[in-house]
């Protein structure tokens, strides 16, 4: 049994320690906001925060997360709308299909926590998540909106 601290709650999980965190979140715990896109840390749809760092949960084994604090999209804000990144995303209507947006939002929240005034080059580097609908320009605008305090 593995104890996981997710969004401030402790979950006891009976899973092989090698199981990727993504699947424990989605299938063992039934939290489906974190998405499966590739399984090899390429697309970022499964991005979560582990001890404040953005990580691709498809490639993190649960056995390594004994004392870690894990944050998923469901725990980003109490009402699901009040984190500045969520507010900016709504203001600019970033999502199209929306499937990648949990990961995009988690990546943007981590970027802004570490670097409150990211340059375009910083955004290019940090926001490597794939969006097939192509919402990149609105993501960039929304991040700049957060950093300018205009949310």
């Amino acid at each position: 049994m593995i104890a996981l601290d997710i969004n401030g709650h402790t979950h006891q999980v009976y899973a092989d320690p090698e199981t990727p965190l993504l699947w424990v979140i989605r299938e063992w715990l039934g939290m489906t906001g974190t998405k499966f896109g590739c399984g090899i840390a390429q697309c970022g749809a499964c991005s979560v925060h582990i001890d404040g760092q953005v990580m691709r949960s498809c490639s993190v084994q649960v056995g390594s997360l004994d004392k870690a604090k894990i944050l998923t999209i469901e725990g980003l804000s109490p009402d699901g709308l009040s984190h500045p990144v969520q507010k900016a995303w709504l203001q600019h209507e970033v999502p199209q299909c929306g499937y990648c947006q949990s990961g995009q939002i988690m990546a943007a929240a981590a970027l802004l926590a570490a670097n409150p005034k990211p340059s375009d080059a910083d955004i290019d580097e940090a926001m490597s998540n794939i969006c097939r609908c192509g919402t990149y320009n609105r993501i960039r605008t929304a991040i700049h909106t957060v950093s300018s305090g205009a949310v």
Binding site: R26, G30, M31, T32, G33, T34, K35, F36, T72, I73, E74, L76, S77, G80, L81, Q86, W89, L90, E93, P95, G98, Y99, Q101, S102, I105
Partner: peptide
Amino acid sequence: VKRLDTVDKLNGRQIYAIDVQ
């Protein structure tokens, strides 16, 4: 006008087919 389907895409609540339980 604003889209009718944005809010749930910001917090993981939108249920895609792959999320069905």
